[in-house]
């Protein structure tokens, strides 16, 4: 048997990353686990509570309601953003001077900070003075995102689609650009229809970037906080109180660190399971 040479020194190069991850992820996560079993009133004094907070969260109607809202929101925006983003990427030019114009236009929403997006849409959608709100009302729609849950949901979803579809577009476009010209020539010789080209060449070639786009959009939308917080503050009532908004209310508003920690861990487990399932199932198809 031949002995393979291994360079153990390479591990040294990874050390800074390990230290960084320990500081910004592992230590905070360990602290959250510690908090989830205890009660505190400040001053670093803790009382052991056992699994009480987990039971409370698991039986809480409030948590269940936020979770359902979160799942509905994430499902809706994924159903809109992924097909819409792919459609835009497919219709963008591949060569010529318009390529850079289109790419810059697409990148613009991604450059705007999240709280600014929230503030922009807050004013844009105001029913009495905002461009969107005023227009919708003058067209005869009864629209007021500060009062009606449906309008609030409509605005939050529209805002997210406006802000994040570009990410799907840019990733899909990168996938499309990497397809060699020979594939298209072969399709032309075979007399493939435009739909056949999309179905059998472009979509399969975009698969990997689409998985990344889906996972990024899933995780980001599942953790969404700033934009709806600035736009609606979780209202009207609790209509747009998604999981992270509820979590911040519990942790910082009510200073219930124990229940908030238990909530975060359950939240974390849901994200972990969904990402793992999605990644594993798509990679399984890939292997076959």
């Amino acid at each position: 048997m031949t002995q393979k040479t291994t360079h153990q020194k390479a591990w040294l190069l990874v050390t800074p990353v390990v230290v960084l991850v320990a500081f910004n992820a592992l230590i905070p996560l360990m602290t959250v686990v510690n908090y989830s079993f205890q009660e505190t009133f400040g001053n670093n004094i803790f009382f052991w509570e056992g699994t009480h907070w987990f039971e409370e969260v698991l039986h809480s109607d409030r948590f269940a309601a936020s979770l359902v809202r979160q799942i509905v929101f994430t499902t809706i925006i994924l159903l809109i953003e992924i097909p819409f983003g792919v459609a835009i990427a497919l219709s963008m030019p591949r060569k010529g001077p318009w390529v850079s114009v289109c790419l810059v236009m697409m990148a613009l929403p991604l450059l705007i900070p999240w709280n600014v997006v929230g503030a922009m849409w807050n004013i844009f959608a105001l029913p009495d003075i905002g461009l969107l709100g005023k227009t919708l009302n003058s067209l005869g729609f009864d629209y007021d995102y500060t009062q009606q849950p449906f309008s609030a949901w409509f605005t939050v979803i529209l805002m997210d689609v406006w802000h994040w579809t570009s990410l799907v577009v840019l990733l899909s476009y990168a996938g499309l650009s990497s397809i060699p010209e020979a594939y298209y020539q072969a399709a032309k010789i075979d007399g493939a229809s435009p739909w056949a080209i999309i179905r059998y060449i472009e979509l399969p070639k975009m698969k990997r970037v689409l998985i990344i786009a889906f996972l990024l959009r899933f995780m980001d939308s599942f953790m969404i906080y700033t934009e709806p917080f600035v736009l609606t503050g979780g209202g009207p009532g609790n209509a747009t109180t998604f999981l992270s908004i509820d979590l911040v209310k519990v942790a910082l508003g009510q200073f219930d660190l124990g229940p908030a920690a238990a909530m975060s861990l359950i939240y974390f487990l849901i994200i972990l399971l969904t990402c793992w399932l999605f990644y594993t199932l798509t990679m399984k198809d890939e292997a076959q």
Partner: peptide, 15 residues
């Protein structure tokens, strides 16, 4: 490290 609120059961879990 008192802010990390270590307890024996949670430490045992991480160990």
């Amino acid at each position: 490290l008192s802010w990390m609120a270590w307890t024996w059961p949670t430490a045992a879990f991480f160990i």
